[in-house]
Design a protein around this nucleic acid. Structure first.
Length: 596
RNA sequence: GGUCCCAUAGCUCAGCUGGAUAGAGCAACUGCCUUCUAAGCAGUAGGUCUUUGGUUCGAAUCCAAAUGGGAUCACCA
């Protein structure tokens, strides 16, 4: 496909040269897909050349078309509509293209030799994952797959936020109200247990504030003076000093949470090559602070706090170390960036982080640049918008979130219901059925979250379950299952459909050519998705391929076809579509079933 | 207030580096299962692409401003 476009560009350049003496670099010629209401596959726009040619756009189109039909073997015909030259491609070219695809099954682009670290998920250990985290996890996983498919070497890392005041809050609530209950006793996952106490803390804390305010204290003061908050801060101090009792509780609760996370990760099908823990990295930044001071990039204020001035970059002054010598969030990030670079010497470091941290990431990059770090330019913030509920923003503290585990469970249930309603479950064992439901559930959910441009906020209405029809994951999965049925039947009937089996195909159906065009766009799509870090491009592609195939599927019959070569060709075409759908969906982290 | 992001059909979203009458899905309405899975296919209806200027042969797309929505500007993470 790439080659085909290349050839046509070259031919067009030659045509321009020979008919109008206009010299153009083939690479700069822009071709676009022909609108479907006109005949043709590629369209060349002639408007830009009217001045140089001294002719009207239609005349130019006509002249170029005639030249190409004469001289370019790929072009079988053309038509001119105003300034648009629509080029038709010969059937033999499509078949040739299709044969090339069959030979190239890997679907991976040439090795770039580039190393990329993708940091994603990065949960707090005080609460279970919710819908917003799912967007993050699916994005991170998918982008990693896409970058890998584009020929890069990807390392997936998870930077776990396992320390800080918020963790202490759930620890404290547990200490006060927990009665030493374990997840087993409570009958819930460890991350949910921690989350329960986090919410409990907030409730009790708010009560205290109300009390204080009732007794005449200002709200702001009350927030600081509430005994629970003071206790939590006290606990954090003890943690930093290595207090044995606090550390033991911290370890215990985190262990529970990790077990819960592991289950969720496994359930939603994401994984990591490496975990970093903030409790281990939060001190790392101090060396960078020393370095910054030595280089004169940072400066010390009289109180001993350390700052960086980023006004030249259009940013502000930023504190990088407190007066008491303790580090802040950005200090840790400076350290971790260095650590990641030392370990992986990456060319690109992707951070999958919500857009509320856009400024923070800008600052991080600017500081590293000022420090002269060679890896600063390689930092890419894959920023994504919040997932909103109809009621507004999700708030963990107030417990108004869509819990990830519950949502997945509900999706499984929806998948079961829809499948049973359609009566498509005969012949499945209990196990197979469950597996199918999960594939469909995750397909629907992942596709729903990934098909949208990450930058955009999105709305999720828990009342309306995610669709299984139309532009959805299950629609694409269904297309794959249909093809799988065809391939099974072909095997049963012992039909050969290797290249030799369709050496001569008399005529291509319009829908067949369309499917081949779609298939031919795969590599270009992967490249583009990788360049833009955009799973939505992959989703769009998979959908369009499935649609093109379904059109073909209903327009022509395979096993009723009397020409055996055509029949074999159609089976081979179907097989290639199935493989391509599987690859594309794989890039989204979605599995495709053989039956549904 | 400064900075950044978003605005396309009733709803959810596509629309690549500017190109033809702006596309899908859902919802509504019409057809199509004695034929390979109807979770499908074909069709009808639905739009001043928030507004106003500018650049251009040509703007949903690029630039500027306005309006509306969101994020952020912590010695929180």
């Amino acid at each position: 496909m790439k080659n085909l476009e290349q050839k046509i560009r070259t031919a067009l350049a030659a045509a321009l040269q020979n008919t109008f003496s206009i010299a153009v670099e083939p690479a700069t010629i822009s071709l676009q897909p022909t609108r479907k209401e006109f005949a043709g596959t590629f369209t060349f726009v002639t408007f830009p050349y009217t001045k140089q040619a001294g002719k009207g756009p239609e005349q130019i189109g006509q002249a170029l078309g005639e030249y190409l039909k004469e001289n370019a073997p790929e072009i079988s015909g053309f038509n001119v509509v105003k300034g648009f030259l629509n080029l038709e491609i010969g059937e033999n070219v499509w078949l040739e293209l299709f044969r090339e695809m069959l030979g190239n099954t890997e679907g991976k682009l040439p090795d770039t030799g580039k190393k990329i670290v993708v940091e994603y998920s990065s949960p707090n250990t005080n609460k279970p994952l919710h819908l917003g985290h799912l967007r993050n996890n699916f994005l991170g996983y998918s982008v990693s797959e896409i970058l890998e498919a584009a020929g890069n070497h990807v390392t997936k890392v998870n930077l776990v936020n396992d320390r800080g005041i918020h963790i202490c809050k759930s620890m404290l609530a547990y200490q006060l109200f927990g009665n030493e209950e374990t997840p087993e006793q409570a009958g819930i996952k460890g991350d949910h247990l921690a989350g329960r106490y986090y919410v409990m803390f907030d409730k009790a804390y708010k009560q205290e504030i109300d009390e204080l305010v009732k007794n005449g204290m200002e709200v702001e003061t009350a927030k600081k003076e509430a005994p629970l908050m003071k206790e939590a801060q006290e606990m954090l101090k003890k943690w930093e000093q290595g207090d044995a009792e606090v550390l033991a509780l911290w370890k215990q609760m985190n262990a529970w949470v990790y077990q819960g996370f592991d289950e969720t990760y496994q359930n939603i099908g994401v994984d990591f090559h490496k975990y970093y823990y903030e409790s281990e990295t939060y001190l790392l930044g101090k060396e960078r602070v020393e370095e910054g001071l030595a280089k004169g990039v940072f400066y010390k204020k009289p109180d001993g706090s350390v700052w960086v001035d980023l006004k030249e970059e259009g940013l502000d002054e930023k504190l990088v170390l407190r007066a008491d010598g303790t580090s802040v969030y950005i200090t840790q990030d400076l350290g971790t960036a260095e650590l990641k670079y030392q370990e992986f010497s990456y060319d690109t470091s992707v951070y999958v982080i919500a857009d509320e941290q856009n400024y923070h990431m800008q600052v991080l990059k600017a500081i590293l640049k000022n420090l002269g770090k060679p890896y600063a330019d390689g930092i890419y913030h894959l920023s994504y918008g919040m997932v909103d509920l109809p009621s507004g923003k999700m708030k963990s503290r107030e417990g108004t979130v869509v819990d990830a585990d519950e949502l997945v469970e509900e999706m499984n249930e929806t998948a079961r219901r829809k499948t049973e309603e359609l009566g498509k479950i005969e012949g499945f064992s209990e196990m197979e059925a469950k597996e199918l439901y999960h594939k469909l559930a995750m397909g629907a959910l992942k596709y729903f979250l990934l098909k949208v441009d990450p930058k955009k906020r999105m709305l999720f209405n828990p009342e309306e379950s995610i669709e299984f029809q139309g532009n959805t994951g299950p629609f694409i999965q269904y297309t794959h299952a249909r093809i799988a049925a065809i391939l099974r039947k072909a095997a049963e009937m012992d039909i050969a459909y290797d290249e030799a089996a369709f050496a001569k195909v008399p005529a291509l159906h319009e829908t067949e050519a369309e499917v081949i065009v779609q298939l031919g766009g795969y590599e270009k799509m992967v490249q583009e998705a990788a360049n833009l870090f955009a799973p939505s491009i992959v989703a769009q592609y998979a959908y369009e391929l499935a649609k093109a195939y379904n059109r073909f599927y209903t327009e022509v019959s395979i096993f009723q076809e009397t020409n055996l070569e055509t029949r074999s060709f159609r089976i081979a075409l179907s097989g290639q579509v199935a493989r391509t759908i599987k690859k594309a969906m794989g890039l989204l982290g979605i599995q495709v079933p053989d039956r549904m």
